[in-house]
Design a protein around this nucleic acid. Structure first.
Lengths: 259, 259
DNA sequence: CGTCTGGTTGATACGACTCAAATTTGGTGG
DNA sequence: CCACCAAATTTGAGTCGTATCAACCAGACG
């Protein structure tokens, strides 16, 4: 099987920073906006796969912006159980105003090797004071990530294993596609079955069996960290996937600050 | 059994508006701050119990502030399943910036009869431009509600029925206590077992049996819409409840704008 | 009073978990 | 380039938590 996804993803990385690309899903940014954004994302940090970026209990210091790679937020229970509560994909911001809080209530870990920009509160404030268009876009991001968290609550509470995993796959695919990292049903997919288990509240064994069922039903191929969704419409149907919560339909999408 | 809770709750309502009370959990507000807040909460709407305030698909128009009563956000699946994704208690704001979005991805319903203030985007903007202290407090609220949503994800994903319900009871109790609507382990508790089921992803039957188990173990009394937590420490233990996510420990709690 | 909503009980079924072992994959160093 | 090891995936058998379905009961209300 050819793997065009990889090439596409790499090309894209070179072509355009994920941050601007993501925010432009909400609104067009002017050249000035983009350079303001670029200025603020100078402090780049690289984190190895499976390392923590932030630990529960830490004092929040930076707003992070994912430039490349996948990460997750997770919480741990005293009995050792772990729940991944969200995934970070390229272009995602973590917690616009976290630094208001005293200490983190969750950890942030890298799934793959990641590149993140660490933005200081000061930089953040000056960005939000001088660039209203970016500010709006950041708020939009914030609202969308809250909506995603609500959808996960629904996912865990009401969907069975089959629907649940289908839903997660569709969400990740659509989010990747929105930042140019997926096409034609294909994308990189670095999650292990254990990651999927921790995100869906299932066991790895059951995730395994459920993925097999999705394959058997001709909905997906998943192999060597490559996901291929064979029939997106049908998979969305199975997952009862309503894309409204991703709010990709904003009119700002069609505004152009340069016009 | 005497029911002092009711009296306490009523007294409190008269004594102090829930909004200021809630925000002051984060920071002290000056007299000016409070009057700015009061000005903006003039447009009060009353909603009957079990009626919807906002429906999925609606265009967001107002930021709502709960003055009195309980409400919830919920999402519905095409197969009819319903998930309550959060509860609104007196003093809670719904979605600071919702009006940025095109359409609501969930509904908001009243559990009891509710009084809510409907704040316009303009009012909201001017508040946030002129009252930095309130703005900070609003952001804090926003971050806390996001943290609560993450904790619910953990709750649904990793805790069993017994722990799950225990956790929810503790959360609601602590949140009520933080706005002066609970004391000595007691509070009003207007949720039906069906509400609890829809919030915890369990069936009403199983919620019933689980509540009985909590009663049998001497952890709670729950009768006629009155909750009495008999042993908060033990209940928190059972629930593996870590209060850090409520961020009640903010230093702002001890700041005083009037000093 | 009858009706309705919410709460309770019992019997049975099934989705997902557990534990344990086998197999495959990917990375590493000789 | 192959041998090795650890990590990830796969398989099987047995169990358990929670759902389902169907009654029945109690208090609130008109």
């Amino acid at each position: 099987m050819a793997q065009p996804t990889v090439d596409v993803a790499l090309q894209r990385t070179e072509r355009e920073p994920a941050a601007a690309s993501k925010l432009e899903a909400f609104t067009r940014l002017s050249a000035d906006d983009k350079s303001a954004l670029a200025q603020v994302t100078g402090n780049v940090r690289t984190v190895d796969a499976r390392r923590d970026l932030v630990s529960e209990g830490d004092e929040p210091r930076f707003v992070h912006l994912v430039l490349d790679g996948w990460g997750c937020r997770y919480k741990t229970l005293p009995d050792g159980k772990r729940q991944i509560v969200s995934f970070f994909l390229p272009g995602d911001f973590c917690d616009l105003n976290v630094y208001i809080l005293q200490s983190m209530d969750h950890s942030v870990g890298a799934i793959t090797r990641m590149k993140v920009a660490a933005i200081t509160p000061d930089e953040m404030n000056s960005l939000m004071n001088s660039r209203p268009r970016i500010t709006q876009a950041l708020w939009w991001e914030d609202l969308v990530s809250a909506a995603v968290q609500r959808e996960w609550t629904l996912n865990l509470g009401q969907r069975d294993a089959y629907e649940r995993i289908a839903h997660l796959l569709v969400e990740l695919y659509l989010r990747l596609r929105a930042v140019g990292r997926a096409q034609h049903g294909r994308c990189d997919f670095p999650l292990t079955q254990n990651d999927l288990a921790e995100a869906t509240g299932l066991t790895a064994v059951h995730v395994n069996r459920t993925l097999q069922e999705l394959r058997r039903n001709g909905l997906i191929e998943l192999d060597r960290k490559q996901l291929h969704i064979l029939d997106l419409d049908r998979l969305m149907d199975v997952a009862m996937f309503n894309p409204n919560y991703l709010h990709l339909d904003h009119e700002g999408r069609h505004l152009d600050a340069n016009a």
